[in-house]
Design a protein around this nucleic acid. Structure first.
Lengths: 130, 130
DNA sequence: CTTGACTGTGGAGTGCACTCCACACTTATA
DNA sequence: TATAAGTGTGGAGTGCACTCCACAGTCAAG
């Protein structure tokens, strides 16, 4: 599909799509059409990729981080050792985020319980600030 | 407490605190100290507020949105029942994010293991992205 | 063949959330 | 009392993720 349909499918803005392409996050094929500047040809995979980007962003990952994940996933031509380092780093980041999220959850749960029991005693606090 | 202790307590950068104050998100009292530019005096409430800002950001809210929530809460517009609903919604959102993050972590771990064992068998896939 | 819709390019601009800086004043310490 | 440490101010700068724009080539309908 051409960019206009891709835009319709994903709900992204045309300029955002172009930004992602420039960024390397999306790497559509090219058509014969377009001459000197061949038209992009997006696939269902690219639509799926847009979904993954969305999820990654919702998790607070930067486009760079999402790009690294995608890159690693494409089991590319990078040397194996390098890919491993990249993935381990990615995992560490995810785990840090995960830990933070757990702390947040515990806090909100405690606060709900506190309020449900009449707000007696000290208001719950977020624990363990670095 | 003065700003340096507040910074220590919250883990925020001094400049970030000042930014939040300028923004109106934090509204510390002032001390007698400081003469022409009275020193800010932060309370436990402000520390708590910093926690709430953190939670809001983890939920993907902008500082403006968080500010509006705080404002509503201050003006007593939010009865207890409503606040409870709000917090439960926040918890649900945190848990959804948490679940996504777990999926990503599982995927990355599987991929690392797969690669470390010679990339035998099927490449791990990221499951169930909507 | 004309016209209008669609496409790509490079570059500038925007809004957010910080982050850094020079400066001047106040307070605490030696 | 010298001086180091802490504090507020205004303003500039940064990185991210878009968003807008002028321009020019391409394609499809009439």
């Amino acid at each position: 599909m051409l960019i206009s349909e891709f835009v319709r499918r994903t709900g992204l803005a045309r300029e955002t799509v172009r930004y992602y392409v420039r960024f390397g996050l999306l790497r559509p094929q090219t058509t014969q059409k377009g001459g000197r500047h061949p038209y992009f040809m997006f696939t269902e995979d690219d639509v799926h990729c847009a979904d993954v980007i969305r999820v990654g962003q919702a998790l607070g990952l930067s486009l760079r981080e999402i790009g690294e994940l995608r890159k690693a996933r494409r089991s590319g031509d990078l040397p194996r050792k390098k890919r491993l380092v990249l993935m381990k780093d990615q995992l560490a980041r995810l785990e840090a985020k995960s830990a933070e999220l757990e702390r947040l959850k515990t806090y909100v749960r405690a606060k709900i319980a506190w309020q449900q029991h009449g707000e007696k005693g000290d208001e719950p606090m977020l624990a363990g600030m670095k």
